[in-house]
Design a protein around this nucleic acid. Structure first.
Length: 700
DNA sequence: GAGCACTGC
């Protein structure tokens, strides 16, 4: 039986060996195979963290910035902060902060380290995330937090003065908050030379992070050190740690595939039939593809060759219920092989042990700015080399593994090295507003990690924020509107709606709507698409439908949920009405938080008493940018950019003729068509009345 | 008539 992979050639840390004679049963014909250790480059000496303890502490002592390259399992996140603690870096009331890009990792890592240190969680070791602060203001020495939380902390304490060391973990993911935090840290460091900054990164970006801080650290001190004949001491240092990764053999398709979904199905099936035991992980881009792939594999199992085990097929994406998520981590039922079909969630957010085979479509769905519509949209794009290596590494967590890439090797070499950072690829209005609130006036000169946001995006964000009234003609934050908008933990358009609810006298309802649009859809979409369960869900949804659109429908859902609340009964009530209990509970939480902000701003909670027009006008006051006009054929055109748009099938306005010609919407999703999500019917006059500058300028 | 990568405040 031919194999995808040339067996027995993989070595940890080896260079990329070619094994051109490898055969393949993959459709595209024989594939070129090569081995590497799951994308782990081996150009530096790598040692386990415990053996490098002294070196790490020495580097932190000597260098204001240390970049730590450590694979999964190297212990950087859990061990390094403890070494710093033991070495006295948190003495004298100072704290060590460790940022994480996700809430879940902040909590779970903090819990683990607290157990290792031997203290109750929230005492010497604690965490701070939105809605949850398990830390003590004086006793906590190591604080794990989300990067967004630490960024917010800069608004209250611009020098982050309570921290002696700040470790920015998973910086290679290049989230917007991570990048902005690093830019701020570069500034803070100049005013607080004693502050130590540790950045944890993947191999490929380590030098870029070091260079970023070296730009202004190095020159003067380096010249001095050179003149004195001493080695430069002040530059950012890089250190690599040994991880616990196993080698992963990589195979490629010989030719480009016509359809990566079909190719993924074939590849998964052939792995199952031909390869020894070990779980399979397939990377696709979205829920639809996952469902299609699982269906196709289930169909093939109908005539499973004798002697082959059945496949236990499991989906993995963010929209799963808690029970479905738990199933992912269970070992495969006896006598079956587990096959996970996942989105990018399995690349960084969720790790599953036991995977031995990875099938990588080579594509990813990314939020990216579309100049045609003037807004962000989700689009399917080729992944980066860094992504491909990370995905391959998922096969080598517990044993040597294999990865099949559904594209030719030459195509891999043509992929971008890394995924563009969030700040450089998307609308940056929110970030611009927050940086302005931190007193950063010249945003073109902010220290962005390269690649910086394109200047057109900066201009666009500034213009838009001015049209919302958050910035004045000189680009300064307005008082109090702009300041308050920056403070609210929602995007600027929604922040404007919340603050305008004072004038429209509808803050009670707007708070609920804002909370609901901040969580994922409350309506449960069953896996079986258009099955009976789907039809039932549709019937349930209609009970909440408001003629005026999705925002008022969401308000109906929220109100019904709150009225239904009798302790544990509300979960049952959600089940009966096919609503997502977790999403609604989160909305209750968010509403309470937003309410506190409004109260602090002196905005009373006032109900519109059923006056829907007032509510819709208030929504339009923030979302006027996202306005569209209906066309005779039932499609829409955006008012400002004149781009073709369609009503999303999840909208209550889908297949419905709106009573007026205009709608505003929350966001765009680009799949088979360009869809608007979360729509509200508005009057044409409102747009020019509420946003005269924005629309007058556009129509001329 | 047809469907929402992933975070985060």
């Amino acid at each position: 039986m031919p194999h995808f992979w040339k067996p027995g050639t993989a070595r940890p840390g080896s260079s990329l060996d070619r094994a051109s004679e490898a055969e393949s049963s993959f459709d595209a014909g024989p594939s070129a195979a090569r081995s590497d250790a799951g994308g782990i480059a081996g150009q530096r000496a790598r040692l386990p963290i415990a053996k490098q303890r002294q070196a790490l502490l020495y580097l932190v002592e000597q260098h204001p910035v240390v970049v730590v390259v450590g694979q999964t399992g190297s212990g950087k996140t859990t061990q390094l902060p403890q070494y710093l603690l033991e070495a006295g870096w948190a003495a004298g009331g100072r704290q060590i902060a460790v940022t994480q890009p996700r809430r879940l990792s902040a909590v779970s890592v903090a819990a683990r380290v607290a157990a290792e240190v031997g203290c109750p969680l929230g005492d010497e070791v604690g965490y701070t995330i939105r809605f949850e602060d398990l830390s003590h203001s004086t006793r906590t020495r190591i604080r794990y937090c989300t990067d967004g939380m630490l960024f917010r902390e800069c608004m209250r304490d611009p020098l982050l003065s309570r921290y002696s060391v700040i470790m920015v973990d998973e910086a290679h993911e290049r989230g917007a908050y991570t990048d902005m935090l690093l830019g701020l840290l570069k500034k803070i460091r100049k005013k607080r030379p004693s502050l130590r900054i540790i950045i944890s990164s993947a191999t490929i970006d380590a030098q870029a992070f070091a260079d970023f801080f070296n730009e202004d650290l190095a020159q003067p001190t380096k010249a001095l050190a050179d003149a004195a004949g001493a080695p430069p001491q002040k530059e950012a240092a890089i250190i690599s740690l040994e991880g616990r990764a196993f080698p992963v053999q990589i195979a490629y398709a010989e030719k480009p595939v016509d359809d990566y979904l079909v190719a993924a199905i074939d590849a998964a099936w052939k792995v199952h039939l031909n390869e020894p035991q070990g779980d399979i992980l397939v990377f696709l881009t979205g829920r639809d593809e996952i469902d299609a792939c699982m269906q196709a594999l289930a169909d093939r199992q109908v005539d499973l060759p004798s002697g082959s085990l059945p496949l236990a097929l499991l989906p993995l994406h963010a929209g799963l219920s808690s029970e479905e998520q738990a199933a992912i981590f269970e070992p495969a039922p006896r006598g079956t092989r587990k096959c996970l079909v996942a989105t990018n969630i399995a690349e960084a957010s969720v790790t599953i042990d036991g995977v031995k085979y990875v099938i990588d479509s080579g594509f990813v769905k990314l939020r990216i700015f579309n100049p045609r519509t003037g807004m962000d949209a989700l689009s399917v794009l080729p992944e980066s080399q860094a992504s491909a290596n990370q995905r391959a590494g998922r096969a080598g967590r517990t044993a040597p593994g294999k990865c099949l890439r559904l594209f030719p090797e030459a195509a891999f070499d043509a992929l971008p090295l890394t995924t563009p950072p969030e700040l450089a690829r998307s609308d940056i209005s929110t970030q611009v507003l927050q940086l302005k609130a931190l007193g950063i006036d010249n945003l073109a000169r902010f220290a962005y990690l390269p690649p910086a946001p394109p200047s057109e995006m900066l201009v666009r964000a500034l213009e838009f924020l001015a049209s919302l009234g958050a910035l004045d003609d000189w680009g300064r934050l307005t008082k109090p509107l702009g300041e308050r908008m920056a403070e609210l933990p929602v995007d600027p358009m929604l922040a404007k709606v919340l603050l305008e609810s004072l004038h429209f006298r509808c803050s009670d309802e707007i708070l609920s709507i804002a909370a609901m649009t901040s969580v994922s859809t409350p309506f449960i979409i069953p896996d079986e698409g258009r099955s009976r369960a789907g039809a039932e869900g549709e019937l349930e949804r209609r009970k909440f439908t408001a003629e005026e659109g999705d925002h008022l429908t969401l308000l109906n859902v929220y109100a019904a949920f709150v009225n239904s609340r009798h302790g544990k009964q509300s979960a049952k009530w959600c089940g009966q009405h096919r609503l997502n209990f977790k999403a609604l509970s989160r909305a209750v939480n968010i509403r309470a938080q937003l309410l506190k902000y409004l109260q602090r701003f002196g905005i009373d909670v006032v109900s519109c008493e059923g006056d829907g027009a007032r509510l819709r006008k208030c929504i339009a006051a923030g979302f006027f940018k996202n306005a569209a006009r209906v066309q005779p054929d039932g499609s829409y055109r955006s008012v400002r950019e004149n781009a073709v748009l369609h009503v999303h099938p999840s909208s209550v306005l889908f297949s419905r003729v709106p009573p007026t010609k205009y709608v505003v919407f929350h966001e765009v999703v680009e799949t088979s068509k360009r869809f608007m999500r979360d729509l509200t019917v508005v009057e044409e006059d409102w747009l020019t009345e509420l946003a005269p500058h924005f629309y007058v300028r556009a129509n001329r």
